[in-house]
């Protein structure tokens, strides 16, 4: 069908919508739901700016049709902070360590790091962090403050 109904749990809320089946998940989130925190940088799966969590795992939302997320759970950057606006420890660590400049790639990093920390509960080495974020391109920071921020997030989390 060229149109489909989807039911996706997005940031805790179940969304049901009819969409064109060719729509990318990234565009669906941004244009149809107004969740513009997920950014689109390359639309061919290299830059990682559009990284979201699908059932808790990081994926490129530009390399997924929205319809493929039907029945699944999506988390975007908008879900990170507390309801009262308090930062998630990862966000706080990024702010503490000047881990962002223009901020365009940042949401993708945050989502990759969230999953990384959940799957690596012990403080990782720098090399492990570097590998974990190597699927996210940043053109501003030169990465080293992001690595510091990830380590700091482990401290803040405790």
């Amino acid at each position: 069908m060229s149109n489909c109904n989807v039911k996706i749990k997005i940031n805790g809320e179940v969304i049901e919508k009819e969409i064109e089946s060719r729509w990318l998940l990234s565009d669906f989130l941004r244009d149809k739901l107004g969740l513009t925190g997920t950014h689109v940088g390359c639309e061919h799966g290299v830059c990682g700016a559009c990284t979201i969590l699908l059932n808790g795992e990081p994926v490129r939302s530009c390399l997924m049709l929205a319809v493929q997320a039907d029945g699944l759970e999506v988390e975007t950057v908008e879900s990170l902070a507390e309801e009262d606006g308090t930062f998630h420890p990862i966000q706080q660590a990024f702010a503490n360590n000047h881990a962002l400049q223009c901020g365009f790639c940042t949401p993708g990093f945050l989502m990759s790091v969230k999953n990384f920390m959940e799957t690596h509960p012990e403080l990782p080495t720098d090399d492990e962090i570097r590998e974990a974020i190597s699927g996210n391109l940043c053109r501003c920071t030169g990465y080293s403050n992001i690595i510091k921020a990830v380590k700091d997030a482990y401290v803040l989390k405790c």
Partner: peptide, 8 residues
């Protein structure tokens, strides 16, 4: 940072 980190 606040807006850029929260997707706003």
């Amino acid at each position: 940072d606040y807006r850029l980190l929260t997707g706003s």
